[in-house]
């Protein structure tokens, strides 16, 4: 099973040179730590910053400079600042190439639920609905099962939907899976030491297994 950092490390391999990327809160934020130095990418924060830098030192902390998770950040070289309408114009306009976000559930046709648990959690969707409705490439980072052991990869989402038919790839603590255009989770890679049978037993939606399924490699 992968740690949260290993999930982030595996997702970082999906990043390509020259991309503008939006990272969600939680595991997705950790992806920034694993993007190879030789790649030139720009991280977008939907509260109005292109070019998120590393977290600040105590001396550098500026309360007027935060990311979408409200964490203090710095600006990378070549950053730009803008208002919220412009920020989502970039997102909806298709200028952000890759969105990486967390999820409570993903369905086998690529629907995602991550904003509401009726009667329990009423925090709101923030920018998630705009992001998933717009990006060409959406990768989900999440645990394969909930804390109570229920599969989060389902035939249909049971929780209120954030976006339909939008997820392309999922990286969990057990596996890398792609959404088939005709429906189903295509198993691509296994976490080291995790068997196909275990992944199969913990995936409630339709799983597609073709040929050899390699283990993920971590340098």
């Amino acid at each position: 099973m992968l740690t949260k950092d290993q999930i982030a490390q595996r997702i970082a391999k999906e990043v390509k040179n020259g991309q503008y990327i939006n990272l969600g809160i939680g595991i997705p934020t950790l992806v920034a730590n694993y993007i190879p130095d030789q790649l030139e990418v720009v991280l977008q924060s939907e509260n109005g910053l292109l070019g998120i830098g590393p977290f600040p030192t105590e001396e550098e902390i500026d309360p007027d400079l935060i990311n979408a998770g409200k964490q203090t950040v710095t600006m990378a070289k070549g950053s730009a600042l803008f208002n919220s309408a412009e920020s989502f114009a970039m997102i909806r306009g298709g200028h952000v190439h890759l969105t990486i976000l967390g999820a409570m559930e993903v369905s086998e046709n690529g629907d995602i639920s991550n904003w509401k648990i009726p009667g329990k959690m009423v925090k709101g969707m923030g920018g998630a609905m705009d992001l998933v409705a717009s990006a060409d490439n959406i990768i989900v980072a999440m645990q394969h099962c909930s804390r109570s052991g229920e599969s989060k990869l389902l035939a249909e989402c049971s929780l209120p939907i954030t976006g339909i038919r939008c997820v392309k790839k999922i990286v969990t603590d057990l596996a890398v899976l792609e959404i088939s255009p005709s429906g189903g989770f295509i198993l691509r890679e296994r976490a080291p030491g995790v068997s196909i049978e275990e992944i199969k037993s913990k995936t409630a939606g339709k799983m597609i297994i073709e040929g050899e399924i390699p283990e993920m490699i971590f340098e």
Partner: peptide, 10 residues
Amino acid sequence: DLIPQGTLAE
């Protein structure tokens, strides 16, 4: 009234 952030901004 909860509204997607980009929709709220626009």
